[in-house]
């Protein structure tokens, strides 16, 4: 393989610290620049648990290696700006859309982030490509429709220039128009940021809809009762990534 993996996670497990229930069993995965990975599974199978574990949002055991560096506790805020988890339900603070977009730039980790300050022009142009009027920058974020909120949530993440997006059923609450726009925007982001191929991007998308996963991704993982099953992707073009994922899983 020419390039080292963007992100490697090894033997990541999560147990409910209160009930002792195993929620995620020793999952391992390699993500390369340019990967488009789908994650399917029944509700309750642990898809969200796995995505949250990748973003290190819950107490887990295991190893996270980003760009060759093992992530330790002090790296975590900066890591989460680079490997961004987008939840099913977007959240906004009281205040305008612009204030919400500025929020991540108020955190200390902004100093080490890919972008350290808010760029209003970029926000406005990103909005236009998503079919949103830049005028909503001045509207209260909480007054937006569900679809608009999900779009703004995506813009908020994109403005941080992430390397990996972890998308947890992002279009579940959107109507079909908004769903298509959202999908297009993700693919466009992926295509454009990988064209220069120096700093590749990847995303992982969970969905109930197998058609959506086929449409958007080139390999499919399955979650089953807290276990990650690799990979069932029909596409042959990404066999090398598939193989390396199998190897990573075999380590466990």
């Amino acid at each position: 393989m020419s390039q080292p993996p963007l992100l490697q996670i090894h033997n990541v497990s999560r147990t409910d610290t209160s009930t002792g229930k195993h929620l995620l069993e020793s999952a391992s995965l390699l993500i390369h620049a340019g990967d488009r990975i789908g994650l399917v599974g029944n509700s309750g199978s642990g898809k969200s648990t796995f995505l949250r574990a990748m973003a290190m949002l819950d107490r887990c055991t295991g190893e996270w290696i980003f760009n060759g560096n093992t992530i330790t506790k002090d790296d975590i805020p900066a890591y989460r700006r680079t490997v961004i988890y987008l939840s099913q339900r977007p959240f906004f603070t009281t205040g305008t859309v612009e204030e919400n977009l500025r929020l991540p730039f108020l955190f200390k980790s902004a100093e080490t982030g890919a972008r350290d300050s808010f760029q209003r022009d970029l926000a406005a142009s990103t909005m236009q490509t998503l079919g949103l009027s830049p005028q909503i920058l001045n509207q209260p974020a909480e007054s937006l429709s569900g679809g608009e909120q999900q779009m703004v949530s995506l813009i908020r993440a994109l403005l941080l220039d992430p390397r990996i997006l972890l998308l947890d059923e992002p279009t579940a609450a959107l109507d079909s128009d908004a769903k298509l726009r959202f999908e297009e925007r993700i693919l466009k982001w992926h295509r454009e940021s990988n064209a220069g191929n120096e700093y590749g991007r990847a995303f992982l998308w969970t969905s109930h809809d197998p058609n959506q996963v086929d449409r958007l991704t080139d390999q499919t993982l399955t979650m089953q009762q807290g276990e990650l099953i690799l990979p069932t992707g029909p596409n042959s073009e990404n066999q090398s990534a598939n193989k390396s994922n199998q190897q990573a899983n075999g380590v466990g």
Binding site: R80, Y85, P104, F107
Partner: peptide
Amino acid sequence: VETMLALGAT
């Protein structure tokens, strides 16, 4: 709280 953590808050 979770959104802030996911976007790089300590």
